[in-house]
Simulated scan of single mutants.
Amino acid sequence: MIPTLLIDLDNTLLGNDMETFLPFYLQKLGAHLADLIPPDQMIPELLNGTRKMMDNLDPTLNLEQAFAGHFYPALGVSEEELRTQIDDFYATVFPSLETITTRFPESEQFMKTIFEAGHEVVIATSPLFPRTAIVQRLEWAGVSVERFDYKLITSYEDFHFSKPRLEYYAEILGRLGKSSQETVMIGNDPENDLEPAKTLGMAVFHVHASSPNEYPGGSLEDAIPWLEEVPKHSHGSSATQPQVLLAHHRGNLAALLSMTKNLNDPIWTRRNDSGEWAPVEIVCHLRDVETEVNLPRVRTILSDLDPHLSSFDTDRWAEERDYICQSGPNALSVFIEERQETISILEQIDPEDWSRPARHSLFGPTTLIEVMNIAAEHDVLHLAQLRSALVE
């Protein structure tokens, strides 16, 4: 059984025609803010801000920040001036939009079945809305957060990429500390839900009355027996594609930033079990591996002809370098800088450079793309470790 399910929301769990929903949403939001900003000024800038979120590829900038960086300056107002009114809109007006959505009766039973089967569930909806807008739509669908313990809900407050970017799905995998082989994507939209997830190596299920042969599909009820069989299907990783590796390196950085956001000193240094690393030790380890292993290897492979790559016993560094006594935020800051440098180099190389050879002291002949795939898998291993370390 594949343990983790990513499930889309709109038109998968809840009938919600966006061509109907969005005009109503914009009209009501515009009217609610009209005493502060004229709707004919506010709505175009909201749409421009939404495009900024959809275009964002900066792992250090979450979608709320990408939106706010355009929206409020374009209107010539501070965020503080509009925040109270916007929050009031989502609390008092947004609930009225339920009337233009349709509850799918099968969604509730589907959710009960998969939770009873022991799956962990991510609501992998477009993160262009604040969390409250997504939580409310889950309630409209009959699958509220009060009834079901979702492991993750993607919203603009703590996600950095949007559908259909590969980075969106890579960030989810990073947050979970999971490989693509351990996850399934279930959704109704081939372009936004299925193709990017499949490109990352996930099994996918098309929720559609007449699913084309390109993807397994059918109703939500049909997904239940399919989930029981999916390990028998081939859904191999596409990690040999440069775009996939870049997505993982961006997504893993974004995941780390969300997971370590607002950690206090006691949590940074807390070890849940004897022998397990604390969050500060994990981040220090990632920092030093990026600084002393990953980035130098990239530079060496790109500059030398078939270079020799030494192996390192990096796990020893935690004790030898006394990571537990170091600053977590400082280590994170250095890791961000080094990972962004790695990404910057990889973004600029020619396609054929990914195949440049090297000789690893343990693995033997290798290539740049294989080395960077190992680095991405190493990230996920320690993101999973961090996820466990943050459980109280």
Rank of each mutant, 00 (worst) to 15 (best):
E341R: 09
Y25H: 13
G275V: 10
L263S: 10
E338D: 15
T366Y: 04
D379P: 02
E139N: 10
T92Y: 03
R287H: 10
V204E: 00
Y323D: 01
G364H: 01
R387Y: 14
L227M: 08
E229D: 11
L253M: 13
R387I: 04
L332A: 13
E146W: 05
H160W: 00
P164W: 03
F115K: 13
I123E: 11
E195Q: 06
L362V: 10
Y169Q: 03
V122M: 03
V334P: 09
G201Q: 02
T84I: 01
L14F: 07
M372H: 14
N16I: 05
H382M: 08
L246E: 09
L295N: 11
T291H: 15
D306C: 01
L386S: 05
V293E: 09
S333Y: 00
P190M: 07
L332E: 13
M185N: 00
L26K: 01
Q385H: 15
A239Y: 11
M372R: 11
T113R: 13
R270C: 14
D288P: 12
L220K: 02
R103L: 14
F161P: 00
F67P: 00
P164Q: 03
A255F: 07
L138Y: 07
S310Q: 12
S96L: 04
E221D: 13
R137S: 02
T4V: 13
T342G: 09
P225Y: 05
D40G: 05
N330K: 10
S344L: 13
T50W: 10
I324K: 08
E81S: 11
P231G: 06
A209W: 05
T12L: 09
L63N: 12
N11I: 06
Y156K: 12
S388R: 09
L256A: 06
A91K: 14
A170T: 07
G364D: 00
